[in-house]
Design a protein around this nucleic acid. Sequence first.
DNA 1: ACGCTCGCATCAGGTGGGAAACGG
DNA 2: CCGTTTCCCACCTGATGCGAGCGT
Length: 579
Amino acid sequence: MLGGEGESGAYTAGKDAAEEKRASPAADEDESATGTRYEHGMGGADRYYIPHTISKQSPEAQNPCSFIPYTPGGTVYSPPSAARYSSSLHLGSVLPPAGYSPSAAGRTHFSPPYQHGQNLGCIYPPYTGSGAQVYLCNRPLWLKFHRHQTEMIITKQGRRMFPFLGFNIAALNVTSHYNVFVEVVLADPNHWRFQGGKWVTCGKADNSSQGNKVYIHPESPNTGAHWMRQEISFSKLKLTNNKGTSHSTSQMIVLQSLHKYQPRLHIVEVAEDGVEDISSDNKTQCFTFPETQFIAVTAYQNTDITQLKIDHNPFAKGFRDNYDSIYTAPEPDRLTPSPNDSPRAHQIVPSARYMQPLFQDQFVNNLPQNRIYNCERTVPQTNSLLSPPSEDGTSQRWFVTSVQQGGNSTSTSNKLDLTHYEGEYSSSLLPYGIKSLSMQTTHALSYYPDSPFTTMSAGWGSRAAYQRKVPPSLPWSPRPSPTAVFSEESGKVKLTEEVYNDALVSSWTETQPSGQSPNKADSYSIACKRRRLSHNGPSTEDSPANSKCVVSAAPINSFSKEPPLTKGLASFYSFYTNP
DNA sequence: ACGCTCGCATCAGGTGGGAAACGG
DNA sequence: CCGTTTCCCACCTGATGCGAGCGT
């Protein structure tokens, strides 16, 4: 975000901190990074999200280990006209400007009162819990955008999200059928505008927005085994501002420009024919990942966001002025590290052409089974780390224990802890002997999951032919790929000891601290207009993006109790579970 | 002859930039 | 007037089809 450092300074100077924070997520995160953010008064209304699951809860949902929403601050703004799931699935913590009525939603709601510092002793819910566990893939990239306040273009014909939503799901009943869909809801009751290099609120949001807010995954309904088999990608999801288009409502979500939205993943157990059993209370689960929050725009406002998009979206390569020199020159000659230029990102394609392996996590589960180390999960849930090992410690995927976001840390939409992102990855900092688990993904694949090497699922026009082409071990694979597995039988993550140990040594030892403040002076913004030439810009901190899936396998509430690094690692792969 | 792989060409569609159009 | 939206552009990726080359 532009001017972030300045904003941060403004906070410490005692300026209207609350308002500033509301207007400047980046600054918020800066504060978070310093560890001071959550210590005072968690704002309440300006804190909208906390990872949580909402479900017709089984009794254990009330367990303190569950993901308990941060009630005081609210999580999702819920206008009275919210669609069914908007109104019914969000927690009671939702800001209820017009009154939130759980009963009206026709579902029971799990909205225990928030208790500061509760659950400290239980940072991870029972793995055998009845609820699904959802991992946000590509989370590092999401975080990158989030720290600048993610913007998503909306057009009449619909624009894909970038980064797009991708999840791995575990702990579903392999034989049961589920509908999986994404809903995008208002994140707050405000209208936003980009002013003075930062996002500021500007009046009330238009609650009368109409149009489709739900995108049902094209493979729905399907079995739990199917959903757990590979990443569930929503890359085909499009955002539009055209309320009139009805023909493609199934593919498009209608949003309003300059409003802040929060995507939510819903998993609904259904009958085999896809019909939802309304009478059942225990079959709907909702997962919110605060880092996926974004402001819908018709044109990019923040040049940092633009640059991030250009840097990371392969379809925007044409806008990389120095594409040739940067991305095709021998690595030592590159002016700027490419997104996979990190020492950990050496699944570089054996091609001169630069390909961004930002989504290795999206195919990691699609590797031939014989490449999957299949051993019992031995890593304590609270401290497990798993990342793809590459020879140099490249991490493509992380399973991090500890916590995603702390309840008492009052994590909310704007309060993601990004410290890990800024270079706290030194393994020496790993607390409790946490080891980063490198999961070899082996190939730098094309960006989208429909790539031949990536997941064959998710309705990307996957073709069996491509599946056949997936080599058991690609030539440039440093070594066989130990990986994490969502066991279809158990729905549990299985890690190998080898991987686990490997990761400890290799992962994140070559951290690339950004050194760049998320917020830059306006001058930088101007410079960005010309686009990067030499860059200290956002792309220099790409390393985390290469480890695309990170698990935070602990209840949000215990975040604050985690050692800093654990906390940081946790956010590399959001892992919300629904006990 | 048949099947397979590979390389190339083509096409559809996604991308941000920038100018024009729109609207309060 | 100014902020927002729309449209078009050049450039790119990915999917697909085709033919050449090769081995059986």
